[in-house]
Computed example of a mutant assay.
Amino acid sequence: MPVLAGAEPFSHTGSVEAGVLLCHGFTSTPQSMRPWGEYLAERDFTVRCPRLPGHGTAWPELNRTTWPDWYGCLRTELLALRETCESVFVFGLSMGGTLALRLAQDFGEQIAGLVLVNPSVTTLRRDAKLLPLLGRVLPSVPAIANDIAKPGATELAYPRTPVRAAASLAQLWRLVRADLPKVTQPLLLFRSRVDHVVEPVNARLVLEGVRSENVTEVVLEHSFHVATLDHDAPLIFERSVEFAQEQVGSR
């Protein structure tokens, strides 16, 4: 299946001191993370941003994958970074934040810190409980992508939301919520004041559930869900670099 132009994975080999694994969101692509990755690369971080299985091609392909496929891809990249970098960080947007939390739960101190942007661990939508049943008869529903306040900014993502894949994401949410106390790494969490995709309860559940001693929440006043492409992107990039540099220095 051909990859959409702009959806390709990217990487940069920089310093061995610090590496960053970037994790994009559900139905999205590495395009939503590329400006962040370029910012990190310019500051000599080693960067990897894979294209998650089923993403960046055509939406029916995503229905043929499940959360262990997405997680397995990121796990492989994390292990590769661990081989070359002294400190490894995981930065994630939306579902990328969910997967970042799962990696933190499994890898413990091998991850130096987390930066999450509008991470998802649940939804208040009533029809979400019906996803396993809907997936048997309904391949897709309207898209959740491109929630951006900045005029002219566009997220490269699917025009439909695959239902079976969404049901698998809901399974991942349950696992991550149950294991939030296993997260002890330093955590920087960005939350958009207005987000039409991920409800505020998600950030609250994460912040109240983790056992990290070093936790910072930053509220984004000028961005919607895809904040890495929105007005507050420079703030996210700058604060994430400061956060990573502080952790490297403390280690």
Results as ranks from 00 to 15, higher is better:
residue 1 M to Y: 03
residue 2 P to D: 04
residue 3 V to S: 04
residue 8 E to A: 11
residue 8 E to R: 03
residue 10 F to V: 10
residue 10 F to H: 08
residue 14 G to R: 10
residue 16 V to E: 13
residue 19 G to C: 03
residue 19 G to R: 00
residue 20 V to A: 14
residue 20 V to Y: 06
residue 20 V to T: 07
residue 25 G to L: 10
residue 26 F to R: 03
residue 27 T to N: 00
residue 28 S to A: 15
residue 33 M to N: 05
residue 33 M to I: 10
residue 38 E to C: 12
residue 38 E to K: 10
residue 38 E to M: 09
residue 39 Y to E: 13
residue 39 Y to K: 06
residue 39 Y to P: 14
residue 43 R to G: 12
residue 46 T to C: 11
residue 47 V to F: 11
residue 47 V to E: 06
residue 47 V to P: 15
residue 47 V to Y: 11
residue 48 R to C: 12
residue 49 C to A: 10
residue 50 P to S: 04
residue 53 P to W: 03
residue 54 G to S: 04
residue 56 G to A: 02
residue 61 E to R: 01
residue 66 T to A: 14
residue 67 W to M: 09
residue 75 R to A: 02
residue 75 R to M: 00
residue 77 E to A: 10
residue 78 L to S: 06
residue 80 A to E: 14
residue 84 T to P: 02
residue 87 S to K: 07
residue 87 S to P: 01
residue 87 S to W: 01
residue 88 V to W: 02
residue 89 F to N: 04
residue 91 F to K: 01
residue 93 L to F: 04
residue 94 S to N: 05
residue 97 G to L: 00
residue 97 G to D: 02
residue 98 T to Y: 05
residue 101 L to E: 12
residue 102 R to V: 02
residue 106 D to A: 05
residue 110 Q to E: 15
residue 111 I to M: 01
residue 112 A to D: 00
residue 117 V to R: 02
residue 117 V to D: 00
residue 117 V to E: 07
residue 119 P to M: 00
residue 120 S to K: 09
residue 120 S to T: 15
residue 122 T to I: 05
residue 122 T to H: 09
residue 123 T to L: 13
residue 123 T to C: 04
residue 124 L to Y: 04
residue 126 R to F: 12
residue 127 D to C: 00
residue 127 D to W: 02
residue 128 A to W: 14
residue 129 K to C: 06
residue 129 K to E: 07
residue 131 L to S: 14
residue 131 L to Y: 14
residue 131 L to K: 15
residue 132 P to W: 13
residue 134 L to D: 13
residue 134 L to Q: 15
residue 135 G to I: 09
residue 136 R to P: 07
residue 138 L to H: 03
residue 141 V to Y: 14
residue 145 A to T: 15
residue 151 P to T: 13
residue 153 A to V: 15
residue 154 T to N: 11
residue 155 E to W: 14
residue 157 A to G: 13
residue 157 A to N: 11
residue 159 P to T: 04
residue 159 P to C: 01
residue 161 T to S: 12
residue 161 T to V: 13
residue 162 P to T: 12
residue 163 V to E: 07
residue 163 V to G: 10
residue 166 A to K: 08
residue 166 A to W: 15
residue 166 A to V: 12
residue 174 R to M: 08
residue 175 L to I: 12
residue 181 P to V: 09
residue 184 T to Q: 14
residue 185 Q to H: 05
residue 188 L to E: 12
residue 189 L to K: 02
residue 194 V to Q: 01
residue 196 H to G: 09
residue 197 V to T: 11
residue 198 V to K: 00
residue 199 E to H: 12
residue 199 E to R: 01
residue 200 P to C: 00
residue 201 V to Y: 02
residue 201 V to T: 08
residue 203 A to N: 05
residue 204 R to V: 13
residue 205 L to E: 14
residue 206 V to I: 15
residue 207 L to F: 11
residue 207 L to R: 08
residue 214 N to H: 09
residue 217 E to V: 13
residue 218 V to C: 03
residue 219 V to G: 03
residue 221 E to P: 08
residue 225 H to W: 01
residue 227 A to F: 06
residue 227 A to C: 12
residue 230 D to S: 10
residue 231 H to L: 05
residue 231 H to I: 11
residue 232 D to N: 01
residue 234 P to A: 01
residue 236 I to G: 09
residue 236 I to F: 12
residue 237 F to I: 08
residue 239 R to T: 02
residue 241 V to F: 04
residue 244 A to S: 06
residue 246 E to V: 00
residue 246 E to R: 10
residue 247 Q to P: 04
residue 249 G to V: 07
residue 251 R to Y: 05
